[in-house]
């Protein structure tokens, strides 16, 4: 009975081609990301840190390395993670290829609704088919239509995602960390708005984000990101519009005197 089932030549030939494609992709030398990866940051309604100022940026979305003068689109193992932001130029050191670093940005806490942190990232790669994401603490959301109105106001929409979720990547979207309404309601409000906001981001301390990327040749790559939340130091020698982020944590006590950006990031970024 089972002898009737044969692998026909078209299937074998298609498989041979996929193997050849995979061999080519895996054999290419890995490009290194430039040491300083410029990322355009989004302004936050709350003060980000001592010494920072929010500078309105021109209309449009800009996150990729290709927009910077000396950068290269560097893809290690087929994909690249970039923090998304909109209004402020923040440079992230190229400490490791797949470290996830996101900064508090244009988030919002909805009364009796979800909390959208504004900590956003994008996954980029030429041959990505889908991405499956899951997080063991908190939730994820999708920021659609990353653009601004002519007057500079936000024109994006936010969508709380299922957990886990499988997405086809689109250009004008980014993925962010969120809290469902019930969790959001349980977070202490703190002494002021900034403390309350940071309490929400602190919820992601110890969370693990799992990312399974499926490429167009059918292969997959899975990475785990063990997250922390807290202040990351801004280089005090940063000038002008640029803020250079350092892989150095700033404690709550130090935040009163040290420029920082509150972030959700890979624990490997600061190790």
């Amino acid at each position: 009975m089972a002898e009737q089932f044969h692998a026909e030549e078209p299937l074998k030939n298609e498989t041979r081609q996929k193997i050849a494609d995979a061999r080519l992709r895996l054999s290419q030398p890995k490009k290194r990301r430039p040491r300083w990866q410029p990322v355009v940051a989004c302004a936050c309604a709350l003060a980000l840190a001592v010494g920072l100022s929010v500078i309105p940026r021109p209309q449009g979305v800009s996150t990729s390395a290709s927009e910077t003068s000396n950068s290269q689109n560097t893809l290690l193992d087929g994909f690249l993670l970039t923090a998304y932001a909109a209004d402020e130029n923040i440079q992230v050191p190229d400490k490791a290829s797949h470290d996830l670093v996101t900064f508090e940005g244009n988030g919002i806490g909805v009364w009796n609704g979800p909390f959208y942190s504004g900590c956003l990232f994008q996954i980029e790669g030429p041959d990505i088919s889908t991405v499956t994401l899951s997080i063991d603490k908190g939730s994820l959301y999708l920021e659609h239509d990353l653009a601004r109105n002519p007057d500079g106001s936000d024109n994006s929409s936010k969508e709380l995602l299922q957990n886990p979720v499988t997405l086809s990547l689109q250009e004008d979207t980014a993925i962010g960390f969120a809290l469902d309404p019930e969790t959001y309601a349980s977070i202490p409000e703190g002494g002021d708005l900034k403390e309350g906001w940071h309490n929400c981001l602190d919820y992601f301390n110890g969370a693990t984000l799992t990312m399974a990327i499926t490429f167009t040749d059918g292969t997959t790559q899975t990475t785990e990101h063990h997250l922390k939340a807290g202040g990351l130091k801004v280089d005090e020698n940063s000038t002008g519009n640029e803020r250079v982020l350092l892989p150095v944590e700033v404690s709550k006590e130090e935040q009163t005197s040290t420029p920082y950006i509150y972030a959700i990031y890979d624990e490997d970024f600061v190790s």
């Binding site: 692998a7 299937l11 298609e14 498989t15 996929k18 193997i19 995979a22 040749d217 059918g218 292969t219």
Partner: peptide
């Protein structure tokens, strides 16, 4: 799908 995945 399984066939291709196995050989990859």
């Amino acid at each position: 799908d399984v066939f291709q995945e196995v050989f990859l």
